[in-house]
Amino acid sequence: MASEAKTVEAGAPPVYHHIDPVNAYHASKLGMWLFLATEILLFSVLFSAFAVYNWMYFEYFHDAATKLDWRLGAINTAVLLFSSYTAAVAVYKAQISDNRGVVINFGISFLCGLIFLVIKYIEYSAKYEHGYFPGTSYWNSTEFSAHYKNYFGLYYTMTGLHALHVVIGMGVLLWVIGLARKNRFSSRYYTPVELGALYWHLVDLIWIFLFPLLYLID
């Protein structure tokens, strides 16, 4: 009755009543790619909104961008790029039935995500101290131009939404690590590893667009 997956043996693909394992693998991958397409569209709206306001308030935006510390942004870019590399290695490890390799490599990706968030937190709190943060007295004062607010508003929306994706991605990595610790993966079945890595690559990719757009427009 239920199409609940039943584990038969370690490393074997789950059994479904409605789809065979090979097809299930392809279906999951197609589903993930479609989902990634929706994510990219989601951020495209933010990119185009940013482009419009950047064009409308050119000077303000370029000036506001100098308030960001591009070095911290660059470090974060490097951290995420490296984490994408380890995520790719994890998929390879799963394909050669090395569950320990999956745990280690996804573990490194997970830690990179954590480093990214810590650096992001440092950046946010620096902004908060300078008063470039919604709710601070400087932000609410008339000295702070509305067009700076447009910039920082989009900055927080875009980086905040991206950070949320980092958190979700870390959750996915953790879930896959848990499965790998139970030796669930093998050359016959590694769908969750591959999908998790795909999602993590997307999180990385979006940041690669965000970084020059927000930090380097000057």
Binding site: T38, L42, V45, L46, A49, M56, P134, K149, N150, L154
Partner: peptide, 29 residues
């Protein structure tokens, strides 16, 4: 659908944090 989703989210962000995105009084469009 993702396009309208994020647009409505921006509307919420604008209302909650008072950031000008669509309201011309706050420099939005």
């Amino acid at each position: 659908t993702p396009v309208v989703g994020i647009t409505l989210l921006l509307l919420i962000v604008e209302k909650v944090f008072g950031i000008g995105i669509f309201d011309p009084a706050k420099g939005g469009d």
